[in-house]
């Protein structure tokens, strides 16, 4: 399991090995917005079980932080002001850590839903966090501690990607079979 890194806009790439586990592979990665030397990488082992690593010193050092997450990671987001607050979406859940992956807490939603594929954080106000799943979009105003279903009106709820544009307080949502949607918050 590893990643490739470019420091010159894609002109050249360097491979960095994270794990020696046979058959493991990385699938997603995120750089902490307030500290580019901290990375979080998610992937799976040969049994398609989750592997989560935290990289420091720009990827020179790696620490396994899977710590109880089992399903394949689909998305990672890092708090723009606190690189220890991390969100990971897996198929069955959204996980939150407040200590850089030392421990994970499963986020609670009002109804049973799954297929989580996307996480977005408002860079200007990191209390605002959004997750997207097969059933729609959930919204937190307290850094992921509690969540509200904001799907109503999104008639194609199978979410593939989220992006929050702080400049106009608008959440953009990519869907499977319904194009792009947007909503201001």
């Amino acid at each position: 399991m590893g990643i490739v890194v470019s420091k010159n806009g894609g002109a050249s790439w360097t491979a960095i090995k994270i794990s020696n586990q046979t058959g493991s592979q990385s699938t997603i990665a995120a750089i902490a917005p307030n500290n580019a030397n901290i990375l979080y990488v998610g992937g799976v082992n040969s049994d398609w079980k989750a592997l989560i690593y935290k990289g420091t010193n720009g990827g020179a050092n790696w620490t396994a932080i899977t710590n109880g997450i089992s399903n394949q990671p689909q998305a990672i987001a890092v708090d723009p002001q606190d690189s220890n607050i991390v969100y990971i979406a897996t198929y069955d859940a959204v996980w939150r850590s407040s200590n850089g992956g030392g421990a994970w807490t499963k986020c609670a939603f009002a109804f049973n839903t799954w297929g989580f594929k996307a996480v977005a954080v408002n860079k200007s106000n990191p209390n605002q966090v959004f997750v997207g799943c097969s059933g729609g979009v959930f919204y937190s105003q307290d850094r992921g501690l509690t969540w509200t279903d904001v799907t109503e009106g999104l008639s194609v709820p199978d979410v593939t990607q989220l992006y929050f544009n702080s400049a106009n307080s608008t959440l953009y949502v990519g869907t499977q079979g319904g194009g792009l949607w947007k909503r201001t918050f």
Partner: peptide, 17 residues
């Protein structure tokens, strides 16, 4: 009814809200 597996947004550089 398009499938959107990925999208990107480049915010305006004007800074206007």
């Amino acid at each position: 009814a398009t499938d959107i597996p990925s999208f990107a947004l480049l915010p305006s550089s004007s800074g206007a809200r």
